[in-house]
């Protein structure tokens, strides 16, 4: 399923889905008023409680009470000192974001000889896709139990033709044990495809060729003994960009396996 197919399918599906009656405006207003009253009561209660505690404890414990007050206020929905560099699961500044940027630099250091990766190349097809350069990196807490996922992506090519390189490093926080071809198959649910194990030094790297991939042609995967999983993916085109395809993958399967085995992508 491609983007436009999903766009059409969603509309068809919604057209075919019976809708319940419109929501009631009065009920909505009542709910908003109840919420307002509840919040006022809560905040008043908190203010009273904090004042009592402050008077009782005195100035000796003032620094600690300041922290307690912040926690109480946060619990009531009044967020103080919020770190706006991390929203939910994606960090845009800080140690994890720096690791993501480091991963991008490592990927750039792997661009095959004869190919380039401009930092300002953007999609050319749909204006809605023009959200900035194709080159990017990110760090997101997307894995179970708070594990961090680092990803980086670049276009690579020459003579106005472009392919795609993508690297993902999972610092798992659980007991994931999938390895080899089973691990490779978890990447974007690419399916079984044709997977071979390729030795690189003392490591066995799974290289999976996607059967009918519209975004990724091949992915190499390796899991370190500490659970860290590295995926390097490539495609001979950069999907949904309008860019002219390079026509060949940047790496041979063996070279892709060597990249996945390279400790520079471990990020530890």
């Amino acid at each position: 399923m491609h983007e436009q197919e999903l766009r059409v399918a969603l509309r068809n599906a919604m057209d075919a889905t019976p809708r319940p009656p419109e929501m009631n405006v009065s009920e909505m207003l009542d709910a908003a008023h109840v919420d307002r009253g509840r919040r006022r009561s809560t905040l008043a209660g908190i203010a009273t409680a904090v004042a009592v505690v402050l008077i009782t404890a005195g100035a000796v414990f003032a620094p600690q009470l300041h922290t307690v007050a912040r926690q109480i206020s946060a619990a009531a929905g009044e967020v103080f000192g919020q770190d706006d560099t991390q929203d939910g699961k994606t960090q845009t500044a800080g140690p994890h974001a720096e690791l993501g940027e480091h991963l991008l630099n490592q990927l750039l250091s792997s661009v095959p000889h004869g190919l380039i990766s401009p930092d300002d190349l953007e999609p050319t097809d749909n204006p809605a896709n023009r959200g900035g350069p194709l080159r990017y990196h990110q760090a997101s807490q997307d894995l179970p139990n708070g594990g961090w996922r680092y990803t980086a992506e670049i276009p690579v090519g020459k003579d106005g033709r472009w392919a795609r390189l993508y690297v993902e490093v999972d610092h798992v926080a659980d007991s994931s044990t999938l390895a080899g071809c089973q691990l490779a198959q978890t990447f974007w649910n690419v399916g079984s495809g044709g997977c071979i194990m390729t030795p690189v030094g003392d490591k066995q790297i799974a290289v999976l060729t996607v059967a009918d991939g519209d975004q990724i042609d091949q992915v190499a995967a390796y899991r370190y003994p500490d659970g860290t999983a590295v995926f390097i993916a490539q495609a001979k085109h950069f999907a949904y960009t309008g860019l002219t395809p390079l026509g060949t993958e940047p790496f041979t399967p063996e070279q892709l396996a060597a990249q996945a085995a390279d400790p520079k992508f471990r990020l530890r």
């Binding site: 929203d87 809605a128 959200g131 900035g132 990017y136 992506e153 974007w188």
Partner: peptide
């Protein structure tokens, strides 16, 4: 757009791209 989606999700455009790609791949599976 990618930028408006990123604003709604309060994440980067790159995150939107990867989440969209992964979502399509999962749905396709």
């Amino acid at each position: 757009s990618l930028e408006d989606t990123a604003q709604a999700l309060r994440c980067s455009v790159g995150t939107v791209k990867s989440q969209t790609s992964r979502g399509l791949a999962n749905l396709r599976a």
